[in-house]
């Protein structure tokens, strides 16, 4: 098994993740079909519109395949991707993949005029340098289990979480040139990041 990181490319900010992975020297590929997951050792589900992505996941028979993938391999979900990874979502049109024990609320902060950038402290960064995070029509993520590790918080609410090999974020690590978050996730399983 090669160490290819897949990026779900049904819709959304997949290109920015591909740019980030390529800049880190990590082999990567787009995933639009179920069989393409067989070639990947990890997966990023990017931001975008969770309703649209959920619909395409159902229509193109990716749902079960994604769940089977997550049962064995690491998944990182960003914004809409985090919504899809949740156990429950506050919108019946999104059929969550139940990859992480958490509840997601869509558009937790409001419409686009409420989108914002802010500095966060990352628990996974030993040096403790602040991280500039961009929240875009971001969801609210609530852990449903004590086993979830909170890696960053904003106003007391968790906005970055880890559960075993999986990670979920409410903000967008692909929209900056700061690659610490991708590195932090890759370090756990990717040979060149040990």
């Amino acid at each position: 098994m090669s160490d290819v990181v897949g990026v779900l490319a049904l819709q959304g900010a997949f290109e920015k993740h591909i740019e980030m992975l390529s800049a880190l020297g990590v082999e990567n590929q787009r995933v639009r079909y179920a069989h393409e997951l067989d070639e990947c050792s990890a997966l990023i589900i990017p931001g975008g519109e969770s309703t649209t992505m959920s619909l395409l996941i159902q229509k193109f028979e990716l749902y079960k395949k994604l769940q089977e993938f997550a049962a064995e391999k690491p998944v990182m979900g960003v914004c809409a991707g985090a919504i899809l990874m949740a156990e429950t979502v506050d919108d019946a049109r999104v059929i969550p993949l139940k990859i992480m024990p958490m509840t997601a609320a869509r558009n937790n902060y409001g419409r686009q005029v409420c989108s914002f950038s802010t500095d966060l402290d990352l628990e996974c960064d030993a040096e403790g340098l602040p991280y500039q995070a961009h929240f875009i029509r971001a969801p609210g993520l609530t852990p449903n289990s004590d086993k979830i590790e909170k890696l960053a918080s904003y106003n007391g609410e968790p906005v970055m979480m880890r559960s075993g090999r999986h990670m979920a974020l409410a903000f967008h690590p692909e929209l900056t040139k700061d690659s610490r978050i991708h590195e932090c996730w890759l370090k756990r399983f990717h040979p060149s990041f040990q």
């Binding site: 049904l10 819709q11 900010a13 290109e15 931001g47 975008g48 519109e49 809409a80 929209l175």
Partner: peptide, 8 residues
């Protein structure tokens, strides 16, 4: 960033 989310 929002425009990026609308891609595809």
């Amino acid at each position: 960033g929002l425009a990026e989310m609308l891609k595809g």
